[in-house]
Design a protein around this nucleic acid. Structure first.
Lengths: 200, 200
DNA sequence: TTTGTTATATAACAGACGTTACGCAAAGAC
DNA sequence: GTCTTTGCGTAACGTCTGTTATATAACAAA
């Protein structure tokens, strides 16, 4: 009965298109018409898969986290915990144009979060995952002796998450303000406060 | 010739109203009509003082920095440099509802900065001032022997600025996520990396 | 082939947006 | 007093918004 298409796949197409629109024009430029056009459809198709613009916004956020999750998990599989942390952080920092595009998306969602409880809740889940990934890597580092045993890993993860977001903000105001080298220098500074002392 | 009013004062009234609107409804809710209404005027009056909405946005940002600057300078006058830094940071962290309101404004401007070069430029100036204030306090701390002499104060200021913005983001997603105590704990952690060792 | 259902396009809706135009009232200049 | 400039409210403009309604086309099931 009726032709059949994969609804989840369609929703992913629209979610990906929404992300591209946000990258290009900011979250303020995210309109139903523009997303549909970017996806190669019209609003009639989009509304068939999303009841409202808000749902599209949420779904797009979930899609973007799916995209990075695979890369993150591959990076986290590095043999040394410290090296894993480094690789994971290099995927998060706005070092390349592509990664800076993602930061434009995150900042857009931060803005929405400040007055939209639904978006805030979803973003909270993203950060729980992010913070969790870092804390478990730090815990692994402690077991393997690379990370100082008396370190409060929760607090250290908090500090790293905050610092990375802060870097993202600065880069957004202009890459020249915080070039990749300066970003990495700040990360190395954090790493020093976390490393186990030479020998023991 | 004609009745006379203080144009700068009028512009401040509208700028202050714009900030209140952003606090309440986000930067997406900042409309010419809403700002005029918040200020107790109509759009006819507002357009008399601002050629465009963009100019209003810039002016509002400048007004907000004027508001905090006075408090910051008073705090920076503390006898001890470390104490001055602490007081200044306590004015920046989203510790109270009022201060959290300001963070909603900043995040709104971050968002705009990512695709509006004019806003990005103005925000860049704000951050230059903010970073400059912290670096000069750190330099004072070094002179007075409170801050480690071999510290790279530029890098330390960068780290603090980034960390505070990162805290602001987390608090925006929900205060419960980062209560005042946790914010202060993170700041103290930074302070430890900056302090001169006991004695010398 | 006919029937029924789904996918998508087109179009309309009511409202909000930034901006511009216009008109009246207030008040300094003379 | 009149004249003239300015302050501000009202209203209109055209455009864009999210959403809903309707029409057409595609295809599975009978």
């Amino acid at each position: 009965m009726g032709r059949i298409v994969d609804h989840d796949q369609r929703r992913e197409i629209f979610a990906a298109a929404a992300l591209r629109v946000i990258m290009r024009e900011g979250i303020i430029g995210l309109t139903v018409r523009e997303v549909a056009k970017e996806a190669g459809f019209t609003t009639g198709a989009l509304t068939h898969y999303f009841q409202s613009k808000d749902q599209l916004l949420i779904q797009a956020s979930e899609h973007s986290s799916t995209l990075v999750r695979a890369r993150m998990e591959r990076a986290a599989a590095a043999p040394s915990a410290i090296e894993a942390i480094r690789k994971v952080v290099m995927l998060a920092l706005p070092l390349t144009p592509e990664l800076r595009g993602y930061w434009r998306i995150w900042v857009g969602y931060w803005e929405r979060s400040s007055y939209d409880a639904d978006v805030a809740r979803v973003m909270g889940l993203r950060y729980d995952e992010w913070r969790g990934r870092l804390t478990s890597l730090l815990a692994r580092g402690q077991q393997e002796g690379e990370v100082s045993a008396q370190l409060d890993i929760t607090q250290a993860a908090d500090a790293l998450v905050a610092m990375i977001d802060g870097i993202g903000v600065q880069v957004l105001l202009g890459v020249s303000r915080f070039p990749p080298a300066r970003q990495k220098a700040m990360f190395d500074l954090w790493l020093d406060t976390v490393r186990a002392g030479p020998k023991t």
